[in-house]
Every structure is written in C-alpha cells, then in structure tokens.
Design a protein around this nucleic acid. Structure first.
Lengths: 200, 200
DNA sequence: TATTTTACCTAACAGTGTTAGCAAAGGTAG
DNA sequence: CTACCTTTGCTAACACTGTTAGGTAAAATA
C-alpha cells in the first residue's frame, strides 16, 4: 500500500515548494511584500491549498525564521569548531553571527524584523535553545576559569546577544554610507571587553 | 481677513486629531493594527481627508516616530542636566534611554519596530541628529580627557546606541519572565565598561 | 446675486488574509 | 465493473487593507 506514502511524499513536496516560493519572494521584494496569492501563483496551485499546509501567513514566516536560526546555528557551530579556547570560540561565533546577518540580510530581517515579536512567537522557535546552548557553553567555561565564578552566565549570554543584535540592526538601518568595515572595529572592541570582563 | 487664519488653524486641528487618534489606536492595538479607516472613524471624518494632511500611512507613522524621538530627546536632556561630569551624563542618559523604551514601549516599537527601516526613512527623522549630538558631546569630552584622544567618537556613539537598542529589543521580545530588573544589571555593567574603556 | 474656490464625501480600484462550499478525481468495496 | 466514499483542489466570496478619482454642497469672493 505505497499509495498513502506517495501521497504523503507529494504533500511534503508541496509544503516545501510553498516555503521555497515564499523565500524566493522575500529575497526579491522583502518580507512585507510577501502574500499568499503570490505564493499560490508561484507554486501553480490555488490559494486554499496553502492553508492545507500552514495555519496562516504567520506560520510560514515562522517557518522561515526557524530555517534562519538553523542556518545561523550551523554557521556558529562551524566557527566554534575551528578553534579551541573558549575565548577564541566566543570571538569566532561573534564574527560568524555578524557574517550571517549581513550575508543573509533577508533571513535576519525575517527573524527579527517583524516588529518586536511576541513572547508566544519566540517560544515557538525551538532553535533558540540550541543557539543559547551554543554560546552559553564557552561562557560558562570562561566564568568557571575566571576570578568571578558566581557570575550569571545567562546574563552574559544576554549581553552578548544584545550587543551583537544591536550593532547589526543599528548598522542595517544605516545612514547610506558603508560602515560595515568600520563597525567590525566596534565589534572587535566589544568582544575583547566582553571576554576580558569575564576573566578579571 | 482672519478667515484664512481660522481655516489654517482648523486644518492644523484636524491634523493634530489624526495624529492623536493614530497614537491612541497604536497604544491600544499595536502599530500593526493601525488603519486609515479606523483613524477616519475616530476623527469623524471621511477617509480622503486624511490624505489632505499626510501623503500616506507611512507618513503618519513617521510623524509618530519623530514624536517618539522628541520625547526621548527631552528625557535625555533632562537626565543629562541633572549631573555634571561626562561619565555621569553618559550613565544618566543610558538609564533615561532604557526608561523611555519601557515606559513608552508603544513609541519604541513604532520607532524601531517597522522592520529595519530604510535609509530614506532614517534620513527623514531630523530628531536623530539632536539625539546624536546629545550623546556625542560627553563622549567627546571623555575621549579628550582620556589616554586615547584619537578615538573616533562616532564609533563610540554607535557602540553606545547599539548596545542599548540591542539590550532593549532582545529584552522586549522576552521569554515571559520579568527580566527587566535583571537586565538593568547588564546595563550597569555595560556602561561601566563603556566609560572606563574610553578613559584607559 | 453669480461665480469660483474649498472642503468634504461617496464610491470605486486593486490589493490583502482567510474560509465556505462545491466539483472532480482517486481509491475502496461489493 | 459499478457504486460509494474520501481526498484534492478549485471558484467565489467575505471582510478587510491603502489609495484615489470624481462629484456635490457649502463657503468665500467678485
């Protein structure tokens, strides 16, 4: 009875094509211009078919957000594995985060750009816990080896993430000039301070 | 010939009432739920009247953004004037910025929450230069008095702004728990590092 | 009083997310 | 092979959205 499986496979193909088309449209015109009808046209199905796969438009954006975090996490893991010490790992991940944001600006804007996301939305992104763990680990090591072992690692994670995100989003709204290289200096500066702040 | 003036006055009243109604709706249901028709209903005029005062919906949001920056700047000035030294001024302004964001979350979300704003949008907010100057001044003083007088003050402004914005926006998307107090510790930590980093 | 200006509204266009209801095709059982 | 049922996918609609063209009635001017 391979019929059911064939159907299931087909259904997943359609689902994937929806996400693919959505992503294509987001890259092309920005996530604000994404519409169900455009997706329907792109996948050559009628509009209601999309609602057989996703509850609503938000669910599609949420899925793209998850994909974004997956991609980000992959980049972070790769960067982390290249070096050994926790200091170097934090630094490498900061740069990888920065690089991800600018190399995949469309993803980054979907991930953070939908206004300030609601708590419910954030909690639906399971990839966030991977992201946290990834950065938390070297932070904990660094704290344990430093002179203030009672420092809250979550606080430091928060600082790390905030600084990076702030730097990127302020930078992305830009003032027209190309400040990307300039701000890598700021980033460098920050990481040094961040790391040495946990040691001493 | 006071007729023309009376008309002008009336026109400005309507304009103000549009902004007031828009602001009311934003506070109530968030900026995503703002609609021209709802504004029209609130001010008891028909829809096209709104377009006699604003080119489009974005222009209304832009005006609210400007108002937000005005309010923010006022808060910063007030905080700055309470203390004397550049260190204290920077610290006071950081707290004032933080306080503004959480006391006026609706404003903050209009100001930064429309996705990542385009360069054109940013350049239309003249209040941004006031904002910059306000923070740049004590930064310059601090740099001049410090051991690295060749530091770029704009870079430092950028860092300052980024960190604050990052901290706030990561915090606002929250995880449900009330971490506002917790993150004031991060803020405190950051400011100390930021200020001392310019001295030494 | 006649004319022109202005203020304002109705109605429409083109688009959005979402869903109800139907037709046809695909698979199942007698 | 036929009758039935389930699934699949469609058309069409509802209730919105931003935006604008065109007309009407009131107000100001000559």
């Amino acid at each position: 009875m391979g019929i059911a499986e064939r159907k299931k496979r087909h259904k997943e193909e359609v689902r994937a094509s929806i996400l693919e088309a959505a992503w294509h449209l987001v890259v092309q015109d920005g996530w604000q211009a994404l519409s169900i009808r455009k997706i329907a046209e792109a996948i050559e199905y009628s509009v209601p078919v999309i609602y057989d796969h996703f509850a609503n438009k938000e669910a599609i954006l949420l899925e793209l957000t998850k994909q974004g975090f997956q991609k980000l996490n992959q980049g972070l893991i790769k960067a982390k594995n290249k070096v050994e010490t926790p200091e170097a790992q934090i630094e490498a991940m900061a740069y990888a985060y920065w690089k991800f944001a600018f190399d995949n600006a469309a993803y980054y804007q979907v991930m953070y750009g939908l206004g300030i996301p609601s708590c419910e939305t954030v909690n639906q992104i399971s990839e966030l816990s991977t992201f946290s763990d990834l950065i938390l680990q070297p932070i904990k090591e660094l704290i344990a080896a430093g002179k203030h072992p009672d420092t809250d690692p979550f606080l430091k994670l928060h600082t790390f993430w905030s600084m990076l995100h702030g730097l990127i989003s302020i930078n992305m709204m830009g003032t027209g000039e190309n400040k990307r290289e300039l701000n890598q200096l700021v980033l460098q500066d920050f990481i040094r301070g961040f790391v040495s702040g946990m040691k001493a």
